[in-house]
Design a protein around this nucleic acid. Sequence first.
DNA 1: ATGGGTTATTGGTCTGACCAGACAAGTAAT
DNA 2: ATTACTTGTCTGGTCAGACCAATAACCCAT
Lengths: 200, 200
Amino acid sequence: MSLAKQKAYESVLDKLKHFINDKQLQPGDKLPSEREFAEQLGVGRSSVREALRAIELLGLIETRQGEGTFLREYQSLSTVRVLSSFILQEQHTVEEVGDLRRLVEKEALKLAFKQTRQLVSEQWLQLFTEETTFDTDHHYLFFQVVFKNIEHPLLQKLWHFLMDFSHHTDFIQYNKEFYQDLIYIFKHNTIEIIEDLYEK
Amino acid sequence: MSLAKQKAYESVLDKLKHFINDKQLQPGDKLPSEREFAEQLGVGRSSVREALRAIELLGLIETRQGEGTFLREYQSLSTVRVLSSFILQEQHTVEEVGDLRRLVEKEALKLAFKQTRQLVSEQWLQLFTEETTFDTDHHYLFFQVVFKNIEHPLLQKLWHFLMDFSHHTDFIQYNKEFYQDLIYIFKHNTIEIIEDLYEK
DNA sequence: ATGGGTTATTGGTCTGACCAGACAAGTAAT
DNA sequence: ATTACTTGTCTGGTCAGACCAATAACCCAT
């Protein structure tokens, strides 16, 4: 039926995906050489390269001439840099990304509240010094604490992605009270208040 | 100093960026052919292809054999989709995807409640016939109504993606009462109840 | 053991070839 | 004149081979 014929480089990506999965490869591990992989899959080396270049641009792999191709820790920064350099201001998506980011943050806060309420609030307090500036970087650190303490890699990755996007397009604006309220809530209040905090 | 020598396909991407900018190309417009572009830039066609394949994977362009390469409307989540197919290889994420899906659905419900409460509940009622089965397909239709009525493409795309994933890995199980409760809430209650419904 | 040169391997790049899909112009049949 | 077919020429899709550049592995002389 309506099966769009898959391109060679796309099938290479699928195979690569399986390969990584089967061999349980970790970041830093070496992938097969381009020539070897091409022969294994029965495709041309150029097709393998197209696939590798694509995910290299995504920051998923790193290639070193003379050495090989290596799995990399996901660096969403590079992705965002590439994307935002192509996408000139799409106004509505910027806003929508912000919505989604706040949504994810809120849910993460609730998880943190349930799971590691005490631990998080302690680490938060350490973030505040005399000269704390409440900019995007501070926001990042603040929620970094949250995501590091909850067990939810997917939520964390999504958040990172959304943060990077915001970083390059918009500024994150919460006032000082927002963070102070959160700390107070974690110390004294109940979880329902978090919802209220985000309703405004 | 620290100029890491740029790869050919990366310089192609830069040039392409400028090209799009200079010519003020819009989504749907045609890019130069691979051969022509290669000659213009003084690089091989394979390098041009590596660049194009990379941003094709990002969903920035669309190629049609025999016709050419065309600029595409930016699909912000196509990136996430690609990344996810690589990142979501760990087993424990099936559950996490479910979490995220419920999160998105809940937020969408709240939006729908605020924006098009009446319209949604009317359309919901039409979904229930005598022989309604409460399976994944029904769940899809039920929330399809929600997402079609709220103005949030990003949330909608993310939900679609998560639904696709759930479809292939897990089944979505809510009992009949869940949907009936929602309809009742939209008719008679206040928005806070939605939160309660998801807490159980 | 150590240093240095040689060799093999890997990615980086280009070229040329051929296939397949799309399309327009030209041509033959009606 | 209209229609249907053929052909040429665009386009991307793919492959094989060649060569360069950088690194790693090896071997040998010291």
